[in-house]
Design a protein around this nucleic acid. Structure first.
Length: 441
DNA sequence: CTGGGGACGGGGCCC
DNA sequence: CGGGCCCCGTCCCCA
């Protein structure tokens, strides 16, 4: 009964809209006028909620909104959905519909678009990443974007989504190149600087996050990004001597993992393929990030790029538990921080060799010092405590589960002890140089 | 204030 | 096509 009632009520409202009965809201989209009921818009869209709740005393007879960020056709789809629950998606309109939904802060529409796209471009970040996750102590798992809700999508499109480039233009204030096509090589910094005007794209750098147009606020996972930004600024200190990574950070990590789940549940996975032409009039396909203007040549690159939005860090360092977005970053970090790979004396900066550069251990950190610097610092107390860990890292890096590592591993993997260990960093532990050049896989 | 170290994102290439 | 790798530029933190 309830459902039937809701349905008939919605039908009634839709009928009223079509007959322009009691419509108290005008929406102008690229010159085309739409009439609607502000109650309905208010109930359906975060953007309209914002719009209708500010600057109006509720008494004015009409509210106007103007959009240039999407086409009238797209708004028709959106409006029809609002009034009918039917979302008329196709491979040709899904990109812009999702863009508009993002602008209008309509999460349900975003999710439907996401599922629609996902059914076409199945790029799941879940399985591989969680399987490849290097963590022994903190298994990470990210759900695919599918979420749990039952899908109501109307149809499934073909396997490729090729929106016309113009689809992604926003309002006139930021209609500059962006992803118009030929600027596909635009510098990364554009991502960080061209977001001054109302945007429905995630700005990865900005911390002033109060743009009402920014869907960041409407996506359930939005807070994840805040976590991410905060992490970016603070977490790296976990490897620095004398700084404590307290329980808060650990809690933040678990929260982060949870929020990453929410985020993936709400994020559109892959948003599309941009097609344009190069100088020789050859078509160039590119993949457009759903959250920023960035486009990439390959899906894999987009998947990689998406991590900067999701905050996903599937690669934890076994030594200090710091997490990384890419394996290569982890490797680099590990080699630099924990393996003393740099053949430079940390004190006098002189070049050393595998032989002359003595490895100094400070907590989980290792670096090299030349013989003379070592003598100046005083190296009488050299606990040779079997920390040939530098030679054991391949296994550790790989996150080999379990048993075989024994002693050496324990000295690396326990996270909370890291900082304790680093407290004792004052007394240097000198390791006999024994760098049979181990290679990481 | 500045330079170095580290993190990290992007591009491109190879396998 | 995806993963791995290398190089580069940028940003942030800290000494």
């Amino acid at each position: 009964i309830t459902v039937a009632h809701q349905s008939s009520l919605l039908k009634q409202l839709n009928q009223q809209r079509r007959q322009e009965l009691f419509c108290d809201c005008s929406v102008l989209v690229e010159g085309q006028l739409f009439r609607a009921h502000r109650n309905v818009l208010f109930a359906s869209s975060g953007y309209f909620r914002m719009l209708l709740s500010q600057g109006t005393d509720g008494l004015s007879d009409s509210v106007n909104a103007t959009f240039d960020a999407f086409s009238p056709e797209t708004f028709t789809v959106i409006l029809d959905f609002i009034y009918s629950g039917q979302l008329d998606l196709s491979s040709l309109n899904v990109i812009e519909v999702m863009s508009a939904a993002s602008y209008l802060q309509m999460n349900n529409v975003i999710n439907y678009c996401k599922k629609f796209i996902k059914s076409s471009l199945d790029i799941s970040v879940k399985d591989e990443d969680s399987e490849r996750c290097l963590s022994l102590t903190e298994p990470c798992s990210f759900p695919s974007g599918a979420g749990d809700e039952t899908s109501e999508q109307q149809q499934h499109g073909p396997s490729s989504v090729s929106p016309p480039p113009a689809l992604w233009t926003r309002d006139s204030s930021r209609s500059q190149s962006g992803f118009g096509g030929k600027d596909s090589d635009q510098e990364p910094s554009a991502l960080k600087t061209n977001q001054s005007s109302p945007s429905n794209e995630l700005n990865t750098e900005s911390e002033d996050l109060q743009d009402p147009h920014d869907p960041l606020y409407t996506l359930p996972g939005s807070e994840q990004r805040r976590v991410k930004v905060g992490t970016k600024r603070r977490a790296p200190n976990s490897t620095r001597p004398g700084q404590h990574e307290d329980l808060d950070i650990q809690e933040a990590r678990t929260q982060k993992a949870e929020k990453a789940e929410e985020l993936y549940a709400s994020l559109p996975s892959i948003v599309g393929v941009i097609e344009h032409f190069n100088k020789d009039s050859n078509p160039i396909m590119r993949f457009k990030c759903p959250f920023c203007t960035h486009t990439v040549k390959r899906k894999a690159d987009l998947k990689r790029h998406l991590r900067c939005h999701t905050g996903e860090r599937p690669y934890p360092c076994q030594a200090c538990n710091k997490r990384f977005t890419r394996l290569e970053h982890l490797r680099s970090h590990f080699e630099t921080i924990h393996q003393a790979r740099k053949l430079v004396c940390r004190r006098c900066k002189s070049q050393v060799t595998e032989d002359t550069g003595h490895v100094v251990c400070e907590g989980t950190r290792r670096y090299r010092m030349c013989t003379s610097c070592l003598q100046e610092v005083g190296c009488d107390s050299i606990p040779m405590d079997g920390l040939e860990g530098a030679n054991e890292e391949p296994a550790l890096l790989l996150g080999v589960d379990g048993e075989e590592e024994g002693e050496t591993k324990r000295s690396w993997m326990v996270t909370d002890d890291d900082d304790l260990a680093e407290d004792s960093g004052a007394d240097l532990i000198i390791q006999q140089v024994d760098d049979s050049d181990e290679e990481l896989p």
